[in-house]
Design a protein around this nucleic acid. Structure first.
Lengths: 338, 338
DNA sequence: TTGTACGCGTTATCAT
DNA sequence: ATGATAACGCGTACAA
C-alpha cells in the first residue's frame, strides 16, 4: 500500500511504451509529441502520480526553478504586504520563491546574493537601489530577470517597480502645509536609504515654503515601532514645543505618536497634525483616523513576479521603470479647522 | 576577469592535488581527512571560491537541504514573528527554508505537503494539528524531523512546540472575572481551529462562573483585522448592550474595539474591559494600554528549527511536547476600580 | 587515510 | 516525431 520508491521518467516511459526523453518532451513541450503518444503519457503520469525532480532538472539544465527574493526585514508590516503579493503571483507558477533577509545591510545582502548566484536562479527580486558595488555587478552578470522593488530609480539593473519616496514625502508635506500647519516636524526611525529619501522630500518641500527647522527633526537608527513613535514624539515636544504637525517616516511611528499625543493632552489635529506613511489598515480605523500616504505594496510584490514570469516567457513589453505612484489619504488627524 | 564556468569539486581537487571525493569529505567530515590535506583543500576552496551545488548533492543523496514551512498566512502579524524566529535559527545552518502558504485551508496544506514530500525535505515545520487525514499520514511517512508549531497537542507526529490555546483563554477570562467584570463577551474572527479552542476556553471559564451568554458572542469567518474589531464591537453593543468586558480572539480585534469604544463614548476600562491575545507590540503603547495574553511566537519559530537541527545532528533529548506557556499581561484596559 | 567506479533523474545533442 | 548516448556535480560502496 505504501510506495517508497521515487517515480521517475523511466517508470512513466515504460508504462507508456516510449522512451524517457519522449516523456520529458511531452511534459515540457507537448507540441513536439504526437497526439496519441501524448495521451498515453498523460494518463501514465496521472496513474503513477509522477512528479518531476527539480534537483535533477537543475543539474541537467544548469538552471534552478528558484526565484530569489532579498528583503530587509521579514517582520516589518510593509514587507509582509509585499511578500503576500509575491506569493500570490508565484504560487501558480512552477517556480519556488526563496527568501533571504538582508537586515537593512548591504553586506549581508551581498553575501546572500552570492549564494543565490551560485544556484543560477530563474529570477531575482531585490529591494531598492543601494546594493554594494560588488552586489550590483553580481546582479548584472546573473543572466536572469532582475526586478528591483520598493522604489523607482533612474538606472535599474533590469526592471524596477515602486514609487518615488522623495515625491511621496513632498506630497505629504504639501498636504500638511495646505491644511495650514506652519511648523512641521519629522519623525524618522531606521534611517535606511528610502527613509532618508523621504526625509529629503520633506525637507525640500518645507524649505521651499520657508518652514523647515532642524530642531523639529527627530531621527533614530533603531527599527521603527509604535513604541518608538511614542518616545520620539515626547522627545520632539521637549526640544521643539512649537511644532504643530509631524510627518512620520511610517505608520508605526504615527500611531505611537498619536497615543503619546493623547497622553500629553495634545489634541489631534488641532494642536498637532499627524501624517504617516504606507497607509496600513489600522490608520483608517484609529481614533482619530490617521492621514497617511498610500503605497501599493501588494502590487509591487505581485508585479515583480509577473514581470519575471513574462521575461522568462519571452516577452515583457513594459517599461524598465514602473512607477506605482502614491496617494495622500487625508483623514481626521490632519483635518484642522482653518 | 569574469569567470563563467561553475567551479566544481574537481576543480578544487585538481588545485589541491587530491581526488574529488577527498575534497567532498574534507568539507563534510573534516575529521576523516589528514590535517595537511585538509589545509591544502581549505585554501583551494577559498582561492577558487567554491560553493557546493545543492542540486547535485540532492540528486546524489536523495535528500534535499530544504526545511519546509507550512503556515496559514504570510501577512498575519502573529506568523511574522514566528517567521522571524525561523529565519534567525536557520540562517547560520546549511539548510534553506521554503515557505508555503496554506491559507487556513487543510486541503491547500495537503497539496503543499505533497509537493514538499516529493523533494525529500530535511525537515518540516507545520502549523497546528488540523491536517487532513492524508496530510497527517504524509507527515508520518516523511522520514524527517517534523515539528508542529503554534499549539501543543496530545499526539504530535513527532515533536510539537506551542501553547494550549484553551488554557490561555481560560486564564484571560479568569483575569476579566477577577477584575470584577460579570458580563463578558467574546469577539472572534477567522474562527480557525486555534481560535475555536480559545473560544472554548473562554466559554468553559465563563460557564464555570455562571456568566456565559451566547448573545455576547460575535464571530466571523473573515480574516481578523483592526477594522473588523471595530465592526464587531459595534455589532456586539447593538445585540447585547449589557456586556461589560470583551475577550478578543487577537490583538487586531482588541485594538479596533478600543477605537470603536472611544467613538461610541464607552470608557475603557470602566464601562468596558478589553483583553486581546498575543500581545503584539502596540498593546503596551495604546492609550489606554491594552491587556493581552503574551505568547512566545519568536521562540516557537526558533525552537522549531533548533529541534530539527538537533534531530538531524543525532540527538534531540527534549520532550515530544514543548509547552512555551502563556502569560496574561494586565494593563489599563482591564484595570477597573473595584 | 585516500581513491575508483558507479548511480542519482533529468535534459542536450545528435541521430534516425 | 522519437530515440540513444552522454553529461550535469556530487555521494555511496567498496577497494587499496
Amino acid at each position: 500500500m505504501s510506495e517508497k520508491k521515487r517515480i521517475t521518467l523511466d517508470d512513466v516511459a515504460r508504462l507508456a511504451g516510449v522512451s524517457a526523453i519522449t516523456v520529458s518532451r511531452a511534459l515540457r513541450r507537448p507540441e513536439m509529441v504526437s497526439e496519441a503518444v501524448r495521451k498515453r503519457i498523460d494518463s501514465a503520469v496521472a496513474e503513477l502520480g509522477y512528479v518531476p525532480n527539480p534537483a535533477a532538472r537543475h543539474l541537467a539544465t544548469g538552471r534552478s526553478n528558484v526565484i530569489g527574493v532579498l528583503i530587509p526585514s521579514v517582520t516589518n508590516n510593509v514587507f509582509s504586504e509585499v511578500l503576500k503579493g509575491i506569493y500570490a503571483a508565484s504560487e501558480t507558477s512552477p517556480y519556488d520563491v526563496q527568501l533571504a533577509n538582508t537586515r537593512y545591510c548591504a553586506n549581508t545582502e551581498e553575501s546572500a546574493l552570492r549564494l543565490f548566484a551560485s544556484q543560477k536562479p530563474a529570477g531575482m527580486v531585490v529591494s531598492g537601489f543601494d546594493q554594494t558595488e560588488a552586489g550590483r555587478k553580481l546582479l548584472e552578470t546573473l543572466d536572469c530577470p532582475v526586478v528591483q522593488i520598493m522604489e523607482t530609480g533612474e538606472d535599474p539593473v533590469d526592471v524596477c517597480v515602486g514609487l518615488s519616496h522623495f515625491h511621496a514625502a513632498e506630497a505629504a508635506t504639501r498636504h500638511l502645509l495646505a491644511q495650514g500647519y506652519r511648523r512641521p516636524g519629522f519623525l524618522g526611525a531606521r534611517m535606511d536609504p528610502r527613509t532618508r529619501r523621504r526625509f529629503a522630500g520633506f525637507r525640500a518641500e518645507a524649505q521651499a515654503a520657508g518652514v523647515f527647522a532642524e530642531a523639529r527633526v527627530v531621527t533614530s537608527t533603531e527599527a521603527s515601532s509604535v513604541t518608538k513613535g511614542a518616545e520620539m514624539l515626547r522627545q520632539l515636544m521637549a526640544q521643539a514645543p512649537e511644532v504643530d504637525a509631524i510627518f512620520c517616516n511610517n505608520d508605526d511611528l504615527a500611531l505611537g505618536a498619536l497615543f503619546e499625543a493623547q497622553r500629553l493632552g495634545l489634541s489631534v489635529p488641532e494642536r498637532l497634525g499627524i501624517c504617516g506613511f504606507n497607509d496600513l489598515e489600522v490608520m483608517a480605523v484609529a481614533n482619530p483616523s490617521l492621514t497617511s500616504v498610500r503605497t501599493r505594496r501588494f502590487e509591487m510584490g505581485r508585479s515583480a513576479i509577473e514581470i519575471i514570469l513574462a521575461r522568462l516567457d519571452g516577452g515583457w513589453q513594459g517599461p524598465r521603470v514602473v512607477d506605482l505612484g502614491h496617494e495622500v489619504i487625508a483623514r481626521q488627524s490632519t483635518a484642522r479647522q482653518r
